[in-house]
Simulated assay, not measured.
Amino acid sequence: MGGIGAHCIEDFRTLQMFVEAPSMYKETFKLHCVEKCFPDHGVRRPVEIVLFDFDETLTLATFMPSMSSFSRVDWDPGELSGTDWSAEELVLYSFESPFSEGCRLALLRAMLQDISKRHILAVLSKNESGAAAVLNLLKLAGLAKYFSAIWTTPYRSLVPCAVYQASPGQWEVFEPPLMDIQDHQTEVLYHIVEHTDKWFPQIGLKQDRYIRLQPLSPESVILVDDERENLQSPLGKQALRYCKVARYDEVYRSCGPLNQLGGIGAHSEEDFETLRAFIAEPWAFQEPRFEKEQGEEVADPQLELLAVSVYQ
């Protein structure tokens, strides 16, 4: 269903103002954070895990060297010598933003350092190069140490699909239960909630910080992603707390026009504070609600889509 003004008469005045002065309504590229309505949202359970997508979420666009060894955990940056890429160029093209002032990577690093003190951070990415390749790019950017595990889909037998940080700076390959579930971010999220020890080997090592993860609830995990379709699976499972990263098309450095760029903080430094605030108090970002004629308050998914359409 839809309709201008169906739920808010202010729609008419807003549309009139937009028609009269469209230049006053510039497109913005900022994070959109939401806590969905679920039966016991009033309990205000804290966030335990922040699950980041990698491509166009931690990166603006992902650039990796073509060498097969980049998909190994023991890859050495010295292997870039004589290739088309230097370590500095890989970091610049993947993580630094030409669309904002200041150093995006420094701000991203500071945010991850801050939230990793109180929460478990992990990466879940659709990346055919595998988890070790994601890890190696994060290492080049000085970001890997803030994450506990990295998982990549779809399942591939020739490259590692999962790595975990067994001790500071020491990463190990392991086999996550990717074959047991549908290849979709939200399905993985729920499987992590139900079988946490299969996704975090640190639990088997009796590390106190990870033992506390059992039990989890779906709202204990925040999903940070640039793909809206990843927020709800075809089977109907939804990420109850999520952060949608803005996507956009733009001329990018020497690459020319690129489609579907992204990146937390790529256009606005406010993204970093917004995400910090959302992780600390997700209940302050509840989805739009309205009241039915009978007085029953329910969620309005169409109103939410209207509010965030500018970010897609």
Rank of each mutant, 00 (worst) to 15 (best):
V73D: 04
D74K: 09
W75F: 15
G78S: 03
G78A: 03
E79N: 06
D84T: 10
A87H: 04
A87Y: 00
S94T: 11
F95R: 00
P98I: 07
S100W: 03
R104Y: 04
L105Q: 06
L107W: 09
L107H: 12
L108E: 09
L108F: 03
L108M: 15
R109V: 03
R109A: 05
M111D: 02
L112R: 11
D114P: 02
I115H: 08
S116A: 13
K117Q: 15
R118C: 10
H119E: 01
L121G: 05
L124R: 05
S125R: 07
S125C: 05
K126V: 02
N127G: 09
S129K: 14
S129D: 11
G130R: 01
G130I: 02
A131E: 03
A132Y: 02
L135R: 11
L135H: 09
N136W: 04
L137R: 04
K139F: 07
L140D: 03
G142K: 04
G142M: 06
G142Q: 06
L143Q: 07
A144M: 05
K145H: 12
Y146W: 11
Y146E: 13
F147H: 02
S148R: 05
A149F: 06
A149P: 04
A149S: 15
W151S: 07
P154N: 10
Y155S: 12
Y155R: 13
S157L: 13
Y164W: 13
Q165N: 07
Q165H: 12
S167L: 05
S167D: 14
W171G: 12
V173G: 09
P176S: 10
P177H: 00
L178C: 04
Q182E: 15
T186D: 02
V188R: 01
V188E: 01
Y190G: 01
H191K: 02
E194N: 13
H195E: 10
D197Y: 07
W199Q: 02
I203A: 00
G204W: 13
G204K: 13
L205I: 01
D208Q: 14
D208T: 09
I211K: 12
R212M: 09
L213V: 08
S217W: 10
